[in-house]
């Protein structure tokens, strides 16, 4: 009788152990990608911290200095994780990664751009926020501006200046007015979403962006030129 109980007990333990191996050892998701400087687009070597939904830090990994490659494994399927850059020279940024619900091992990919934290650094807004000669934000720009907003909220000591450039050099006075209105439209959006007013100042420009002039001739696929907007870090 005693032997039977021992056998049953061992069997239960064995089943539980194997089921745990199945769940926790094989059914995992890994995230791999490269880390880049958001301004130069060059690979950088940084520490990345991984947090779960409860805000608990799970891991800290370092990306490769040569190609910026990083690899995080042991994540659970169907969960949401937050990746943060753990380097003082870079802005605190939060990248949310949702792992797919899967019953087998899976890898997903995520490249990460981190913005250097330096006074005077010029951060371009990579998408066209405005129509040609217009100063109201286009529909759908919230998707991109919210990323900037979240970054500013995570870095509460950072103060910025928004500078916008015109679409041509035809009328400097009109350009100055248009671009100031564009910068103010971005500022108003950020403040409307909860950013402190004293952290953002704006500026316009009379002439086109010297770093991003109006293109001459055609490339392999043409582009209609619309002046860019930039965030300058004023203080942190």
């Amino acid at each position: 009788m005693k032997k039977i109980f021992i056998t049953i007990f061992i069997t239960i333990i064995a089943v539980m152990t194997f089921s745990q191996i199945d769940v926790f050892a094989f059914n995992v998701v890994s995230v791999g990608g490269a880390t880049y400087d958001a301004i130069t687009k060059k690979p950088i070597s940084v520490y990345i911290e991984i947090f779960d939904e409860a805000g608990k830090r799970l891991q800290k990994v370092k990306s490769n200095a040569k190609d910026g490659y990083y690899f995080i494994t042991g994540l659970k399927p169907g969960q949401t994780y937050e990746l943060r850059c753990a380097e003082f020279e870079y802005m605190k940024q939060s990248v949310i990664v949702s792992t797919p619900a899967s019953e087998k091992y899976q890898e997903i990919s995520k490249d990460l751009l981190f913005t250097p934290k330096k006074v005077g650094i010029q951060i371009p807004v990579d998408v066209k926020l405005f129509e040609f000669s217009k100063s109201s934000l286009k529909n759908g720009t919230d998707l991109f501006l919210n990323q900037n907003l979240e970054c500013l909220k995570l870095n509460p000591t950072v103060k910025i200046k928004i500078v916008s450039y015109p679409d041509n050099d035809n009328d400097p006075a009109k350009n100055a007015q248009l671009t100031l209105e564009r910068s103010n439209a971005i500022r108003n959006y950020l403040i409307g979403k909860g950013l402190e007013q004293d952290r953002v100042v704006t500026e316009g420009a009379s002439n086109v962006d010297p770093k991003n002039p109006v293109p001459v001739g055609k490339a392999s696929k043409g582009k209609r030129y619309v002046g860019k907007s930039y965030f300058f870090i004023e203080a942190y």
């Binding site: 949702s98 797919p100 899976q106 890898e107 997903i108 990919s109 995520k110 490249d111």
Partner: peptide, 16 residues
């Protein structure tokens, strides 16, 4: 070159 899972919208792989 990036590969995406259509159902979940997840970025699955980056080919470099």
């Amino acid at each position: 070159v990036k590969l995406w899972d259509v159902a979940t919208g997840t970025e699955i792989k980056t080919l470099r």
